[in-house]
């Protein structure tokens, strides 16, 4: 399949390992990623707080770029997925159209509304399919207990996103099972990671992250996995702060979704950027009898 690749900001900046892993997995599964250097940021759930109409227009421009190429759009971030889908929905409202369309006309852009915004999780579970993925698994993650962590904007508001279920999703767990891992069910999997207020009130954000990580750990998870690089910042890059906020050691490896798929399909830790994580992933690799990555993690 061929799809417009919308990496989002973080995967091009501090979360580059997510971009590496996505490209590796896409190649292995025959997904052709078409890049567009003119894509802008989705607004990340912040720009709409300052100006909703502007944010919808920015994303209408992004969607129009994919539409002109006749492609649907692939996201690898729960927040990008949420914001671009929200723009698609808002553009169904005539009052929003009435303000956005004239602005788009000034830059010679029009958007009919035909582009489907699909997160990698959906592409893997629906377009590629779990059977096809199972058939390509070379090194199943047998023995690794993984707590999926969805990220709010992939799930909610479910009425707006028309997501499978804001409350009881299972696509991520199904995917984890297909690559041989043992999905762990815990309350925190559909909760917030704290990221949206990480720079507003860090101690509260860290406490929220710490709660979810502790919940996964208490349910026996060796690792967590997330389809959102913003959750990854909160859960991995700031895990030391989360540990301090909840007053216990967590030492929880946190994978980006395509990193785990890549591991099962035979990629090396280096190809997936695992040494870039702040929390070493080696204990999780040890749980599936894989050697530690050659580059030390700390």
């Amino acid at each position: 399949m061929k799809i417009a690749y919308y990496p989002g900001c973080v995967a091009q900046e501090s979360g580059r390992e997510l971009d590496m892993a996505t490209r590796w997995v896409a190649k292995a599964l025959g997904i052709e990623l078409v890049s567009f250097p003119s894509f802008s940021c989705c607004g990340s759930g912040f720009v709409d707080e300052a100006n909703l109409t502007l944010n919808v227009a920015i994303n209408a421009r992004n969607l129009a770029i994919a539409e002109r190429a006749g492609l649907d759009l692939l996201t690898i971030c729960s927040t990008c997925q949420g914001m671009l889908t929200l723009a698609n929905r808002k553009l169904d409202e005539p009052s929003v159209r009435a303000r956005v369309d004239p602005a788009l006309a000034k830059i010679g852009v029009s958007y009919r509304g035909s582009v489907k915004v699909k997160h990698l999780l959906e592409v893997l579970t629906h377009d590629i399919g779990l059977d096809a993925i199972r058939a390509k698994v070379r090194r199943p993650l047998r023995g690794m207990k993984v707590g999926a962590f969805y990220g709010c904007h992939l799930l909610r508001p479910s009425a707006e996103l028309a997501s499978e279920s804001g409350e009881e999703p299972h696509a991520f767990e199904d995917l984890l099972a297909a690559i041989g891992a043992d999905p762990v069910m815990y309350r925190g999997r559909v909760m917030c990671c704290g990221f949206p207020i990480l720079f507003v009130k860090p101690e509260t954000a860290n406490r929220i992250a710490g709660r979810q990580i502790a919940d996964a750990k208490d349910h026996g998870a060796h690792a967590m996995a997330t389809p959102c690089p913003l959750c990854h910042i909160s859960l991995d890059s700031f895990q030391n702060k989360a540990e301090a906020a909840v007053g216990r050691e967590l030492a929880m490896p946190v994978f980006h979704l395509p990193q785990l798929v890549g591991l099962a399909l035979g990629a090396s830790p280096e190809e997936l950027g695992l040494p870039r994580h702040l929390v070493p992933v080696d204990p999780a690799l040890a749980a599936i009898g894989r050697p530690a990555s050659s580059v030390p993690s700390r």
Binding site: C152, H153, R156, C192, P196, V200, K201, I208
Partner: peptide, 8 residues
């Protein structure tokens, strides 16, 4: 400004 926009 403490709202997380988690939509729960």
């Amino acid at each position: 400004w403490l709202c997380l926009r988690c939509h729960l």
